[in-house]
Design a protein around this nucleic acid. Structure first.
Length: 719
DNA sequence: AGCACGCCGACT
DNA sequence: GTCGGCGTGCTC
C-alpha cells in the first residue's frame, strides 16, 4: 500500500527524556540490552483508579485469569485499558519486600478503584506503549474464542494482537476518508438474490448468506469487493478473510479498482511485519474501515463491523495452526453474531458446515439459477481409469484416451490445466470393487491395516474387524495405494512434446501463466490463472482416485472443492471449455461436478453425517498425548462431568508423523508414541464439552499430574 | 512452567 | 545450631 510511504517522521519533542532513551534503544536493534525499568518501590500511586487489572501474556491455561497491579502515579496517564505493559510476575515475598520475578508482558484490561486481592499489589513495571491495542471488543472476541476452543485467553490474544513495532506506533495514521458511494451490483446481478443481499448491506441490516460463486476466473473477487464497498458506503466496516496471499491480493486489487487507495488495507504476512503492523494500527485507530487479509486478519479490530466475509472456507489454511487452533469461519461467525454484522461465506464449492448454516436457517443460500450456471460452466466429462490411450506417449503418462484427445484438441486453442495429486496425498483402505472407504461397523471410523495380511483395526475406537465386507457392494477385497502421481506428471511432458510444460505446486506456485497454448501441471490449490481473462481451454483432473480414496470424512467434499477450483478456471462450454475428470462417474462428488451442484452435494453429505452422528452435526474434540496423559485427561473430564450423551472413542495409537511435515500442536515429538481419543457430543453441547475439557486440563496442570495432553476442538483429520 | 517456602535429616 | 534435600503450592 502506498499509504505506508505517506507517513511523517516521529515527533520526538513531546516525549519525556526517559522514554526517549527507551526509544533509542528499541530502534537501535534487537540485540541492544533492554532498559531496566525502575522498581517503583515506595513511589506514589495513581490517585484515581490506582489498580490496573492485567492480562498476563503467558499461555498457561491454569493461569487463565487476570492479575491486579498498582498503578504508579507517573504511569497514571498512559496506563489505560488496552495498553501493553510489563509486570513482575512469579515472585513471592521475602523479608516483606517484593523481589525478583521475571518481567513479562501483558495488557491492561481495566482500571479499578480497588482489588479483591488481599495481598500487597506489585506496581506495574512499565507501560510499553500508550497505544490501546487490546480494545474491549477485541478482548471480548478473544475470550469467546478461547472458551469455544478450550484454550487460554492469552494464547488467543497473541493471535489477535500483532507483535509491537515501535516505529508505526509513533506515526499518525492517515485521516479516515469519507464513506464512498455505493457501487453498482456488478456480477451480483447474475444471482437472483444478489441485489437484495447488497441492498440489505446498504440498509445496515445483517444478512447472512452462503454464496455459491459462479465459475469464471476472478469474478468472485470483484463481487466480494462490491459487497465490502456497499458496506462501507453504508458507513460500516468490512472484513474479508481469504485462504492465501494470492487470493487476498485479488480482492485487494478489486477493491482498489472500485474505491481507489486509502479506504482499505491488505493484511497478509507477505507485507512484512512493519507495514503489516502499520496497517493493523490504521484499522485499530479507526483510520481505515475495511480489511482484506489471510486468516490472522479474522481478528482485525474493524470498527463498527458491518460485514464479515470468508472465501473458500473449506481450504485448510483457514484453520490456525497455533493453539488453540481456531478456524476463521467460526471466528467470523462469532463476530457476525456479537457485532451484529452481515456474514458472507463464499466458495466455488460448499462445505458441510456451510450447508448446515443454510439447513439450520442461520444463513440463506445465495446461488445462481441453473440456466446461468450452465451458461458459464465448462463441459464436464468423465474418463475411466483403465481406458488408456493407444498412443504410446499417452500410455506412458497413463492418460485415458478421452483425456489425451481432449488435451490435444484444446491445445490448439489455449492453455490446458492438468491437476495431479499432491505428494503424500495417499488414500487409506477402500473397497477394491466400488471404492467405498472401509469403515468400522461400530463407530464408522476408518479401518486401518498395520501391515500386509494383518487384521483390520478402526482408527478411532481400535476395535478389530476380522472379516470386512463392503456395505455398498458386498465386496470383500480392499485396495490401498495409488500409482506414482509425480511420475505421471513428469511423463505428461513426453506425451505432448511440441507444447511448453510448466508446473505449479509445492515450493513453486505460479500466480498466472500466459494465455497461449501450454500444459500447466498443478497440484490442487496451486492452479495459476491464465492471463487475458479467457480461462483454460481444458482441464484434466487426474487425481480423482487419490482424492476420493481417502477415508477422511471430507474426502468427497474436498475432491469436489478441488475439482471445482480447477474447473472454475476453464472457459464456458459455449467457448469450447472442457473438463475431463478421471474418476468413476457413479460417485457422488463426480456427479456433483458434472451437474455443477456443490450445494446439493453438501446437503446430501450433511444428511448422511446427521445419520452417522458425525461433525458438524455432532461436535468433537480430540485429546492427544502420551497414553497416560490422554487416559488421565479423559478420566479427569469424566469426573468434572462430560455433557450428557458424550461418547469417548478410543484412545488409539496416533500414526507416526510423516517425515518433512512440520509438527503442529497436538503432534507427537519425533520418536514418541502418542495416542488420540475423540470425544463426541451432540450439537449444542460443544461449549459444555470445551469447558469440561478445560477444567480437567487446568486441574491436571495445577496439580502437575504427569505428562500433558493436548486438546483440539473441531479436529480436522478425524479419519 | 519457574520459583520460593518448608519440613525433616545430617553436618560443622 | 544451620545447611540443604526436594515435595507442595502460588504467581497480583
Amino acid at each position: 500500500m502506498s499509504r505506508d510511504d505517506e507517513q511523517r517522521g516521529e515527533q520526538a519533542g513531546a516525549q519525556p527524556p526517559e522514554q526517549l532513551a527507551l526509544i533509542r534503544e528499541t530502534v537501535r536493534g534487537r540485540k541492544a540490552p533492554k532498559a531496566k525499568p525502575r522498581t517503583w518501590r515506595g513511589a506514589d500511586m495513581a490517585a484515581r483508579l490506582p489498580v490496573a487489572r492485567v492480562l498476563v501474556d503467558k499461555g498457561l491455561v491454569h493461569l487463565d485469569r487476570y492479575f491486579d497491579y498498582a498503578v504508579p502515579a507517573a504511569m497514571d496517564e498512559e496506563a489505560q485499558p488496552g495498553v501493553r505493559v510489563r509486570v513482575r510476575f512469579g515472585a513471592g515475598e521475602r523479608e516483606g519486600r517484593r523481589e525478583g520475578g521475571g518481567l513479562i508482558n501483558g495488557f491492561i484490561v481495566e482500571r479499578r478503584a480497588d482489588s479483591d486481592f488481599t495481598g500487597r499489589l506489585a506496581p506495574l513495571a512499565q507501560v510499553l506503549s500508550p497505544e490501546p491495542v487490546l480494545t474491549p471488543e477485541l478482548l471480548q472476541l478473544c475470550r469467546s474464542v478461547a472458551d469455544r476452543y478450550a484454550g487460554s485467553l492469552a494464547d488467543v490474544v497473541q493471535l489477535a494482537v500483532p507483535p509491537r513495532r515501535a516505529k508505526p506506533e509513533k506515526q499518525p495514521s492517515p485521516r479516515p476518508l469519507p464513506a464512498p458511494s455505493a457501487p453498482a451490483p456488478g456480477g451480483w446481478a447474475r444471482y437472483p438474490q444478489g441485489p437484495a443481499f447488497l441492498q440489505a448491506l446498504a440498509d445496515k441490516s445483517a444478512p447472512r448468506a452462503v454464496w455459491t460463486a459462479l465459475p469464471g476466473p476472478g469474478g468472485w473477487a470483484d463481487e466480494l469487493a462490491r459487497a465490502m464497498a456497499t458496506t462501507l458506503a453504508a458507513g460500516r466496516g468490512a472484513l474479508a478473510v481469504l485462504p492465501d496471499g494470492k487470493a487476498a491480493a485479488r480482492v485487494d486489487a478489486a477493491l482498489t479498482a472500485l474505491l481507489g487507495e486509502g479506504r482499505h488495507v491488505l493484511l497478509t504476512a507477505e507485507a512484512g511485519p512493519e507495514p503489516r503492523y502499520r496497517r493493523w494500527l490504521a484499522v485499530s485507530r479507526g483510520a481505515v474501515r475495511a480489511v482484506v487479509g489471510t486468516r490472522a486478519a479474522m481478528f482485525a479490530p474493524v470498527r463498527r463491523l458491518g460485514l464479515a466475509a470468508i472465501w473458500e472456507d473449506g481450504d485448510a489454511s483457514h484453520s490456525e495452526d497455533r493453539a488453540p487452533q481456531p478456524h476463521a469461519r467460526e471466528v467470523l461467525l462469532q463476530r457476525a453474531v456479537t457485532e451484529q454484522a452481515a456474514f458472507l461465506l463464499g466458495a466455488h464449492g460448499c462445505t458441510v458446515e456451510a450447508a448446515q448454516l443454510v439447513d439450520s436457517g442461520f444463513a440463506l443460500p445465495l446461488a445462481a439459477d441453473r440456466e446461468t450456471v450452465r451458461a458459464v460452466m465448462p463441459r464436464v466429462r468423465t474418463a475411466a481409469e483403465g481406458d488408456e490411450a493407444r498412443d504410446p506417449a499417452a500410455r506412458s503418462a497413463r492418460l485415458p484416451s478421452l483425456a489425451w484427445r481432449t488435451a490435444r484438441d484444446a491445445l490448439e486453442r489455449g492453455p490446458v490445466l492438468v491437476q495431479v495429486p499432491r505428494r503424500g496425498y495417499v488414500p487409506r483402505l477402500v473397497c477394491e470393487r466400488c471404492r467405498e472407504p472401509a469403515r468400522c461397523t461400530h463407530c464408522a471410523g476408518p479401518l486401518e491395516a498395520a501391515g500386509e495380511g494383518t487384521v483390520l483395526r478402526c482408527g478411532w475406537c481400535a476395535r478389530e474387524t476380522p472379516a470386512w465386507r463392503c456395505p455398498m457392494c458386498g465386496g470383500i477385497r480392499l485396495r490401498g495405494s495409488v500409482f506414482g502421481a509425480r511420475r505421471t506428471a513428469e511423463e505428461l511432458g513426453r506425451a505432448f512434446p511440441a507444447v511448453p510444460v510448466r508446473t505449479s505446486g509445492g515450493e513453486h506456485v505460479l500466480g498466472s501463466v500466459p494465455g497461449r497454448p501450454s500444459l500447466i501441471v498443478a497440484t490442487p490449490g496451486a492452479e495459476p490463472v491464465p492471463e487475458g481473462g479467457e480461462g483454460y481451454a481444458a482441464a484434466l483432473l487426474l487425481d480423482g482416485w487419490a482424492l476420493l480414496g481417502r477415508p477422511d470424512l471430507r474426502a468427497g467434499e474436498e475432491a469436489l472443492r478441488r475439482w471445482l477450483g480447477a474447473a472454475s478456471l476453464v472457459r464456458p462450454q459455449g467457448e469450447g471449455g472442457t473438463v475431463i475428470v478421471v474418476a468413476d462417474e457413479t460417485m457422488r462428488p463426480v456427479q456433483a461436478l458434472i451437474r455443477w451442484d456443490p450445494a446439493g452435494h453438501a446437503m446430501r453429505e450433511l444428511a448422511e453425517r446427521s445419520e452417522l452422528g458425525f461433525p458438524p452435526v455432532s461436535r468433537m474434540a480430540a485429546v492427544t498425548g502420551p497414553p497416560e496423559a490422554v487416559a488421565a485427561l479423559i478420566a479427569a473430564a469424566r469426573e468434572a462431568g462430560l455433557p450428557e450423551h458424550a461418547q469417548v472413542l478410543g484412545p488409539v495409537p496416533l500414526p507416526v508423523l510423516e517425515p518433512g511435515r512440520p509438527r503442529g500442536p497436538g503432534d507427537p515429538p519425533p520418536g514418541e508414541q502418542w495416542e488420540r481419543a475423540l470425544v463426541r457430543v451432540p450439537r449444542g453441547s460443544g461449549a459444555a464439552l470445551a469447558a469440561t475439557l478445560k477444567t480437567a486440563q487446568v486441574g491436571r496442570l495445577t496439580r502437575r499430574e504427569g505428562p500433558v495432553a493436548h486438546i483440539r476442538v473441531d479436529p480436522l483429520d478425524i479419519g
